[in-house]
Design a protein around this nucleic acid. Structure first.
Lengths: 155, 155
DNA sequence: AAACTTATTGCGAATCATTTGCAATAATTA
DNA sequence: TAATTATTGCAAATGATTCGCAATAAGTTT
C-alpha cells in the first residue's frame, strides 16, 4: 500500500529518528505483505535483501512501530510463545487463523461495535479497543485437508 | 463450584491417573477462583497451603486440564506476556481486561454466533472456535482515576 | 566534502516464560 | 505390606524477546 513507509518516515523525522536502510526495508516488507509474520519470519524475508540484518533490529523496529500504533501484534492460540505482527493501518480488523495451515485471514464486522456497546452497558466499563480471533479450517484446507505451510523458504 | 474437581477426578481415574494432593489443591483453587491467574500467580496462591509446590507441577497440571478442555488459556496484551488460565467449564465466554487495574471480566454475547456465520459465508472457512478480547477501563477505574495511569489516556 | 554528533546497528549475553530429564517419592493395586 | 509406576521437585534446557555496548552510519554543520 505504501502508506506505512510514508507515515513512519514522517514520525521518524518528527522525533529526530533516522531512516536507516534496515528500517526502510522492514517498513516496506510489512507494508506490502498480506501476511502476519513472526519476528523471525520477517527476518527471513528481509534477509533476502539484507543478509546481515539482525533479529534485534527487527524487534526494535517492530516495537517502535507498535508504539506508534502503526503495527499491532497478538499471540494466537497454539503459538503461545510467539507474537505475530501486522501493519495496523487499515485500523480495526479481526483475525481468523486456520488450525491446519496456520494462515491468518483478516476480516471486519459491523457487529463488533454492538458487542462493545452490549458489554459497556452491562458492566459500566469504557471499552477502548479489542479484537476477535476465530479458529477453524480455511476454505483451502477444508477441501484438501493436508497441511501446507506459509512459504518462507528462501527462493 | 466444585464442578472441575469432580470432572477432573473422573477423567483422571478413567485414564489411570492419580489424584495427588498437588492436583487436588490446584483443581480446587481454579474451581473457586473468579480470576484469571498466570501460572506463577496460581503457584503463589497454592503455596499458602502447600509451600513446597513447584512451578513445573503447576504447568503440568494446567496443561493436562487444558488438554481435557477443562481449562483454557490466552495471552492478553500486557507487558509481561504470560498466559492466563481459567476454568473453562461455563464453556464459551469472552474477556475484557481493564488496562488500568488489569482485572479480567468474563462476558457472553449472543452476537458471536452471527459473527462466525458472517465470516464463514464470506470466506468459505469452517469456524470451530474463537474468542473476543476487549480492553478499556472497568467501571471502578473509570470512577476513581479515569485513566490517569502511564500512557493510555486516549478517549 | 570532511568533520562532527549521536541514533542505530550487530553481536553476544541476559532475561522471561515454559518445558523437559531424571532420580526420589507417593498413589494405587495386588 | 510390598510392588508397580505415575507424579513430583529440582535443575538444566529451550524458545522468544530484550539489553549493553562498541562499532557504524544518518543527518547536520562547517
Amino acid at each position: 500500500m505504501g502508506e506505512l513507509i510514508n507515515v513512519a518516515q514522517e514520525r521518524l523525522r518528527a522525533q529526530g529518528g533516522r531512516m536507516t536502510i534496515q528500517r526502510r526495508l522492514l517498513f516496506s516488507i510489512l507494508d506490502s505483505l498480506g501476511e502476519h509474520p513472526t519476528a523471525e519470519e520477517l527476518l527471513l524475508l528481509a534477509r533476502k535483501q539484507d543478509p546481515d540484518l539482525n533479529l534485534s533490529t527487527v524487534y526494535r523496529t517492530l516495537r517502535w512501530l507498535e508504539a506508534e500504533s502503526l503495527v499491532s501484534s497478538r499471540v494466537f492460540a497454539e503459538e503461545r510463545r510467539q507474537e505475530r505482527f501486522d501493519a495496523a493501518l487499515p485500523s480495526e480488523h479481526h483475525h481468523f487463523m486456520c488450525t491446519n495451515c496456520k494462515d491468518v485471514i483478516e476480516f471486519d464486522t459491523d457487529l463488533f461495535g454492538a458487542i462493545k456497546g452490549q458489554f459497556q452497558e452491562l458492566s459500566g466499563a469504557k471499552v477502548e479497543t479489542g479484537s476477535i480471533v476465530l479458529y477453524g479450517l480455511c476454505s483451502k484446507c477444508r477441501q484438501t485437508k493436508n497441511g501446507n505451510n506459509l512459504n518462507l523458504e528462501t527462493e
